[in-house]
Design a protein around this nucleic acid. Sequence first.
RNA 1: GUGGGUGUAGCUCAGCUGGUUAGAGCACCAGGUUGUGGUCCUGGGGGUCGGGGGUUCGAAUCCCCUCACUCACCCCA
Length: 432
Amino acid sequence: MGKSDEKYVQAPLGMKDIFPEERLLWIEMENAAREEFEIAGYHEIRTPVFEDTRLFVRSIGEATDIVEKEMYTFGDSAGTSITLRPENTASVMRAYLQYELYKTKKFQKFYYIGSMFRKERPQAGRLRQFHQMGIEAIGSNDPLLDVETIKVATRVYDRLGLGGYVVKINTIGCEKCRPGYREVLKNELSKHKDELCELCQARIDRNVFRVLDCKNKKCKEIRKNVPNTEDHTCNDCLEHFKIVKGAFKDINLEYTLDPHLVRGLDYYTKTVYEITHSAMGARDTICAGGRYDNLISDIGGPPTGAVGFAAGMEASMIALLKTRKENQESKPDTSPLAPDVYIVSIGDESRNYCFKLLNQLRQGGIKVDMDYECRTAKAQMKVANKLDSRFTIIMGTDEIEKGVIKLKNMHTGDEDFSEDTDKIIEIVKGNN
RNA sequence: GUGGGUGUAGCUCAGCUGGUUAGAGCACCAGGUUGUGGUCCUGGGGGUCGGGGGUUCGAAUCCCCUCACUCACCCCA
């Protein structure tokens, strides 16, 4: 079969397979996240991978690129429009609302880890099916929670040994002061419209805040003379932000104030933040989040303060791999995928005997495998070596007749005989 | 959606301005060692040179189309 064969099918664009070796890193990252999340009192919620399309349109915002052109939207047989989740926050809020969790316990903490879907052109660390892990603290306006969520994210990275990340924070105001600032920005920038890059000219009407983080030189020049976010933020938001900054100091967490930091999703209010990593290059955000006090009311619930983040797992992994490579971390002596024992069967007549032994050893908790290709003893030994098996058991007619098991230590080359399977299990387990 | 780059063996890649049966390293398989790995030696299998069309006596090489992958932009994690 060739790649031109009409039967040949490959994974759709932007979809990736993760094989056992790479999966080890995923497990490591997931475990680090789970442990830190649980330590901070966040518990896992698993929401459906698809939702009613309206949920995302209302929460993320109609005019965002995600909703306009990046969602995987289908009609089901009943004619309702469903969409593969492009992010998880909306779903968590929907669940909070749907089960009226606020009635029994207003304040709740959740975390999630899972696949998200966005139909965009894939590139480094960005796929159409990608993975995010994140936390949400729902039901409180406490600024301390803004900082808590950031601290939890950094603890996950610290646990993984990812150094060199930068925490950036900003406030984007609330529904009271944000519209006013939007108008001021529009007016100011319109005066220099001709000097702005083509993209920013469009952004003035579309999403004026985006001009603030444009990388174009001229745009950077122009916005220097534009009033700052904080000048147009209401007292409420300023006070909130002040407490946030103070809390950073209290727990010795470093941050960079980035007045140009904006968010692309409509639901953010007040504090927004990003964690970036230099190993990434052009697109350096590995984690982003903020407060979204209006999201729940936007989808029909009571006014409810909430804050959280989403970390891109592929992006985080690229950063992690790069720093590990730079630090030249030594590889473990034994492969985590290696079996403890590989059974070499000599002669077809011994195979059933070996299969029985294999199952006895597995019953005893030993990671053990054998040859299923009826290969020569030499070939089986090679496989054992390749798998990095610590032991081999060599069984031929001699051993079976004598009623013994021949155990070979692959590191030392020593061979031992034993009549007792339990003794074998003991030896293997004692040699970790 | 826009722009650039790349498609030759399972993997990483050679293959000069078109010239005989398309190569290397690694990996794989077998033998050397008739029941024993990691080193070494010997041999072997595997490619319609992404696909289609064109130019030519002759195309992996030049031209066109197409597909795939990849990087960047937009946007976002």
